[in-house]
Design a binder for these strands. Structure first.
Length: 449
RNA sequence: GGCAGGGUGGCUCAGUGGUACGGCGGGGGAUUGCAAAUCCCUUAUUCGCGAGUUCGAUUCUCGCCCCUGCCUCCA
C-alpha cells in the first residue's frame, strides 16, 4: 500500500502524510460567507475537500472535518439592509441554499459546521490573549488590531516579505493603524449594525479571527489539515496562522492544502468580476453528477476552465460509464485497484483515478469479469458518481415514457415484418424528439440525447 | 516589481531520465437490415523557445518568451 503524499503549501512540496495522532485526522476548511448564492468556484472547493475527506476515511482515518460559515460581515449587513430583511433571515436562507447545493453535488456534511456568530466568547478570548502577549493593541479608533510585525514568521505561508508588502501596498492606510500591515481583530460597532459585547465595547469580529478561533476550538491548537481556495492563502490564511500561533503557542495546521480556481475564458471566476455562474444555474442545465465529474477530471491544484463544452465532455464521459454500468446487476463494491489507490495517494490525483475508472470501463465492455465489475463499483462509489440506475440516467424521470415505448413497440413490429421504411420513419420521428434508439439482443432501448 | 502555479495531439487532462495515461472529437474496420451502443486499429517525430548536465530530457539545471493567480474583499 502506497503512503499518502500531500502537497503542503507551507513547504511547497509533497510530503508524506503523517497525522498528529495515529488513525485520526483533524481537517478545517474555510467555508463561505453567507450573503449570496454559491457559484461554481465554491462548488470546486466543496467537491475537492469532500473527496479528500472521503479518501482519508477510505484510508482508515477517523476524520473530524470542520467547515465554517461566516455569518457576520460587511457584505452580509449591506445585503440585508438592501433587501430590508433581518440579517438572520438572510444568512439562514443562504445556509439553506448552500446545503441544497452541497447535497445535490453529493458532498458529505462535515462533522461540524460552526457559525461565527455562535463563537463570540472564543474569539474574544483569543483577542484578549493576543493583547496580553503583545501581539495586538487597541487603536485610537477603538478597533482592536493585530500588530503584524510582532509575529516573526509572518509571510511564511504566502512567501511574502513584510517590507515588500508595505511598499507595494495598494490599500488606503487607516491612520489609526500603528503599521499599515496591521489588520482588524475587533471592529467597533456602528449604528444599526449587529454587535456583541466585549472588553473593548460593542462590536464584531474581523474575518480572520473567526477561522482561527473556530478551528482551534473544535480541533485544538495544533491539528492536521487546513484547506481552502488559493485566494485565501494571503492574507486570510497568513493571518490565521499569525493569530492562532501567537495566541496559543500551538503549531496550528500542519498541512495547508489549496485548490486551484475555476476560470472562465482563462480568467478567474469571481464575484467581483461578475463572470460567475451559480451552482443552481448550472444545475438547471446539467445533472449534479456532471458538475462533480467535471471537477474531478482535473487535479485539484490545477486551474479548471469552465465552459458548456467542458461540461458536455464530462457528460459524455459519464454516458460512457453508465453504458458499462448497465452490465452490472447486483454487484457489490470490491477492492479498489492498486493503481487507483496509488493515484489517490499521490496528492489526491483524481484525474488519474478517473482515467483508471475509464480503463476498467473499457476492459469491462470488452469482457465482463466479476472482479473488474466489483472494482468498477468501488471506484465509482469512492468518487461518488454513477449513483443513478442507468435507465434513469439515460431516460430521465419524465412521464411520457409510455408514448415513447408505444412507438418503440410499433417499430419492433415493423422490423419483424421487415418493413424497414416504416421502422426508420418511427426512429426518425423519435430522434426529432431527442430520443435515440439502440437495438440489442435483449430488445430495443431508448434514451434521451 | 515580489511571490505562487502553468505552457503536453483538433479540444481536454494525467505522467515519466529511455519518445507520452484517460476522456471528447476525427479517420478506418468489426458488429447492425441501416443505425445507435460496444470492441479493434488509427490520430503528438519541436511534450513553449534556447542552452547545459547525461549514453539518453518532455521529465533535472540555467536563461528567455507567453499565460493565470495572489500581493484589497474573494473558494
Amino acid at each position: 500500500m502506497s503512503a499518502l503524499q500531500v502537497y503542503n503549501s507551507l513547504s511547497r512540496q509533497k510530503e508524506t502524510f503523517q497525522p498528529l495522532e495515529a488513525g485520526k485526522v483533524g481537517m478545517y476548511v474555510c467555508g463561505v460567507t453567507v450573503y449570496d448564492q454559491c457559484h461554481v468556484g465554491h462548488a470546486r472547493v466543496m467537491v475537492v475537500f469532500d473527496t479528500i475527506y472521503r479518501w482519508l476515511q477510505t484510508s482508515g482515518y477517523a476524520v473530524s472535518y470542520v467547515r465554517n460559515f461566516t455569518d457576520v460581515d460587511d457584505k452580509i449587513i449591506q445585503r440585508a439592509q438592501l433587501a430590508n430583511i433581518d440579517i438572520d433571515e438572510l444568512t439562514q436562507s443562504m445556509i439553506d441554499a448552500f446545503h441544497r447545493d452541497m447535497d445535490a453535488l453529493g458532498c458529505l456534511r462535515p462533522t461540524l459546521e460552526p457559525r461565527a456568530t455562535t463563537h463570540m466568547p472564543e474569539m474574544i478570548e483569543m483577542i484578549q490573549a493576543l493583547i496580553e502577549k503583545g501581539f495586538a493593541y487597541v487603536a485610537d479608533s477603538g478597533d482592536v488590531l493585530y500588530a503584524v510585525r510582532q509575529f516573526a514568521e509572518y509571510g511564511k505561508l504566502s512567501g511574502k516579505n513584510i517590507d515588500e508588502l508595505e511598499s507595494g501596498s495598494r490599500v488606503d492606510v487607516d491612520h489609526h493603524k500603528h503599521d499599515p500591515l496591521d489588520f482588524v481583530l475587533w471592529k467597533q460597532a456602528k449604528a444599526g449594525e449587529p454587535s456583541w459585547d466585549s472588553p473593548w465595547g460593542k462590536g464584531r469580529p474581523g474575518w480572520h479571527i473567526e477561522c482561527s478561533a473556530m478551528s482551534c476550538k473544535h480541533l485544538g491548537a495544533t491539528f492536521d489539515i487546513h484547506g481552502g481556495g488559493m485566494d485565501l492563502k494571503f492574507p486570510h490564511h497568513e493571518n490565521e496562522i499569525a493569530q492562532a500561533r501567537a495566541a496559543n503557542g500551538g503549531d496550528f495546521a500542519k498541512y495547508w492544502l489549496h485548490n486551484g480556481f475555476v476560470n472562465i475564458n482563462a480568467e478567474k471566476m469571481s464575484k467581483s468580476l461578475g463572470n460567475f455562474f451559480t451552482i443552481a444555474e448550472v444545475l438547471e442545465q446539467y445533472d449534479p453528477e456532471v458538475l462533480r465529474m467535471f471537477i474531478l477530471s482535473t487535479h485539484y491544484r490545477s486551474p479548471l476552465d469552465y465552459s458548456d463544452a467542458a461540461l458536455d465532455v464530462a457528460k459524455a464521459g459519464l454516458d460512457r460509464l453508465y453504458e458499462s454500468k448497465r452490465k452490472l446487476v447486483d454487484v457489490q463494491a470490491g477492492e479498489l485497484p492498486q493503481a487507483f489507490v496509488d493515484a489517490m495517494n499521490d496528492d489526491f490525483n483524481t484525474a488519474e483515478a478517473v482515467a483508471i475508472l475509464f480503463e476498467t470501463c473499457r476492459a469491462l465492455n470488452k469482457q465482463y469479469d466479476e472482479n473488474l465489475a466489483a472494482s468498477f463499483v468501488a471506484m465509482s462509489q469512492m468518487l461518488n458518481i454513477l449513483n443513478y440506475e442507468p435507465d434513469v440516467w439515460f431516460q430521465g424521470a419524465d412521464v411520457n415514457a409510455t408514448a415513447i415505448e408505444t412507438l418503440v413497440l410499433a417499430r419492433d413490429e415493423a422490423k419483424k415484418a421487415k418493413d424497414y421504411g416504416k421502422a426508420d420513419a418511427i426512429r426518425d420521428e423519435l430522434l426529432a424528439q431527442g430520443i435515440v434508439l439502440e437495438d440489442s439482443a435483449e430488445g430495443t432501448r431508448w434514451k434521451k440525447v
